[in-house]
Computed example of a mutant assay.
Amino acid sequence: MNEKTRTPRYRDGGPIVRFDKVGVTYGSGTQALRNVSFELESGGFYFLTGPSGAGKSTLLKLMYLALRPSQGRAQLFGVDIGSASRDDLPMLRRQIGVVFQDFRLLPHLSVFDNVAMPFRVRDVPLSHYAEDVDDLLRWVGLGGRIDALPETLSGGEQQRVAIARAVVGKPSLLIADEPTGNVDPEMGARIIRLFIELHKLGATVVIATHDLDLVRRSGAPVLQLEAGELTQFPGLEPGAKARR
């Protein structure tokens, strides 16, 4: 990766994510999360699981700065996101890569330009990232589709574009929502290997998934949500109850 395409990395040395009794209540009065407390170490690899409606999407939104907590304290990169100013948020977001479940590709842009978006919004010259984007698209099997528009791609191809866009800048924190849900098992395994390689380079990885076999095979720490509360999280001893 060219040095000029990189964003400054988190260097504090403490947990990269810290939640302390965090709750989220939406305008309708629905409490999506309650008393959620955990820490994720910098450079860790984690899975987020739980049934539909458990609060996984809300937790992810907090972690990629699309939402602020209603109660408690949430910190990313050592910054309290509840009190952070709007001026602080863009620099924090540059350190986060997100794979959305609904892809969120820009329909009028080519595959190449969608993946290059993290650099385009920062006005990084094309010469500084073109090779990185080309290499990554070949790696995910889309080297022959760089000029294609999203509407011409299959669901699995669109997902691979979304994944490439999330990881191309080598984020400090990579968040993925069901990243293997629309691809075949072979490509799913390849995507997980890509996340593992980024983890080896120092990224903290959080993958939300319903694939419990994948979680068990990985042996990675798990955050498990049920009805808006954590029932399992890194550091909780087997058989112990989550603190309230």
Rank of each mutant, 00 (worst) to 15 (best):
G14S: 08
S154D: 01
G156T: 04
Q224N: 03
L174A: 10
V222G: 00
A227D: 12
E3F: 09
V115G: 00
K200R: 09
L194I: 14
S110V: 04
M187F: 03
R86M: 05
L223E: 03
D87T: 15
F119K: 00
V121F: 02
V121L: 13
Q158Y: 02
F38H: 10
S110E: 03
M117N: 11
L137A: 13
P125T: 04
M117E: 14
L212S: 00
L109V: 07
L59R: 07
P150N: 04
K56V: 02
S57I: 02
A54C: 10
V206I: 06
V168C: 12
T25K: 02
G43I: 15
P171M: 07
F38D: 06
R93G: 05
I207F: 06
K200F: 08
V161E: 11
R6P: 08
R217D: 06
G228A: 00
S85Y: 08
P125I: 02
V111R: 02
S172W: 11
D177F: 02
R145L: 09
P15S: 12
L174S: 08
G239Y: 03
E178D: 05
E131H: 12
P15E: 06
L62G: 01
F119S: 00
D113V: 00
I96D: 10
L126C: 03
H128P: 02
G202H: 06
S127F: 11
P185I: 06
P234R: 03
N35C: 13
I207H: 03
V133Q: 01
L225P: 06
